[in-house]
Simulated assay, not measured.
Amino acid sequence: MRKLTYFIACSIDGFIGDPSGDATSMYRFVDEEFLSFLKAEHPETVPAEARKALGFHEAESRRFDTVIQGRASYQLALDAGITSPYSHLRELVASRTLTESPDADVEVISGDLIGRVRELKAEKSDLGIWLCGGSQLAGELIDEVDELVIKTYPLVYGSGMTMFGADFNALEFTLDDVRTFGNGALVRTYSRKR
């Protein structure tokens, strides 16, 4: 069974974006040290255009071969004229409003989201599934999430878009690893306690 990993960036107080969903204030913490970590551990989580610009477009996927993102997250790429932001992965977009995919390589999930995720998890592959965001999608899929990889940047937003945009019972995870960076960023990895 493949793992669904919510690999996400957030502030110290657990927000993945400001009240409008903007997370650009976190970008300044993606420095040389952090990029080296991404290249070594998670190169597939960097959008295709940025991979080219950063010189690691040929880096093989280490953890994921599939990415799922919500409509709002995908819209950021569409607004930039990019219809397949993670063209090096199999891309799925969960949306109730997008009726047709603007790209033949991007699958739109408009129906049974949990059923589709369970199908993906049941596939045979050595690589997992990356839940890219956003908040509402993570909230809908919380019961399917097997692992959290949380990139925490040394910012306090005070309010904004939460990591999980839904009400649910408390779930327990086990801390597996913490990586610290010179700029104050942390990457924490947790496994779901089942």
Results as ranks from 00 to 15, higher is better:
65 D>L: 11
63 R>G: 08
35 L>F: 10
103 D>P: 00
46 V>W: 02
103 D>Q: 03
130 W>A: 04
99 T>V: 10
124 K>V: 13
90 R>Y: 01
107 E>F: 00
59 A>N: 04
95 S>A: 10
90 R>D: 05
46 V>F: 02
93 V>H: 00
116 R>T: 11
63 R>E: 13
149 V>I: 15
127 L>I: 08
97 T>N: 15
138 A>G: 13
93 V>P: 02
140 E>W: 12
74 Y>C: 03
104 A>S: 12
79 D>P: 02
85 P>K: 00
52 K>M: 12
94 A>R: 00
49 E>G: 03
74 Y>T: 00
121 K>V: 05
105 D>M: 09
27 Y>M: 15
80 A>L: 15
30 V>K: 03
54 L>A: 05
126 D>Y: 07
47 P>T: 04
139 G>N: 12
69 Q>Y: 10
153 Y>W: 14
71 R>K: 10
131 L>T: 02
140 E>K: 15
106 V>Q: 03
135 S>E: 09
62 R>L: 11
41 E>N: 14
129 I>T: 06
49 E>V: 12
68 I>Q: 01
155 L>F: 15
109 I>D: 01
58 E>Q: 13
134 G>C: 14
102 P>E: 06
116 R>Q: 09
64 F>A: 03
104 A>M: 08
98 L>W: 05
77 A>S: 11
38 L>Q: 08
86 Y>E: 00
145 V>E: 04
44 E>N: 03
134 G>Q: 08
90 R>V: 02
132 C>R: 02
40 A>C: 10
53 A>H: 12
122 A>I: 11
118 R>C: 07
112 D>H: 05
119 E>K: 11
53 A>W: 09
103 D>E: 11
102 P>K: 08
60 E>V: 14
36 S>Y: 05
84 S>F: 01
56 F>V: 11
28 R>Y: 05
120 L>R: 01
83 T>D: 05
74 Y>P: 00
70 G>Q: 06
122 A>D: 06
64 F>I: 09
99 T>R: 15
130 W>P: 00
62 R>Q: 12
59 A>S: 13
74 Y>R: 02
105 D>Y: 10
137 L>S: 04
103 D>R: 08
82 I>M: 09
81 G>D: 03
135 S>A: 13
90 R>E: 12
82 I>F: 05
139 G>H: 05
71 R>S: 14
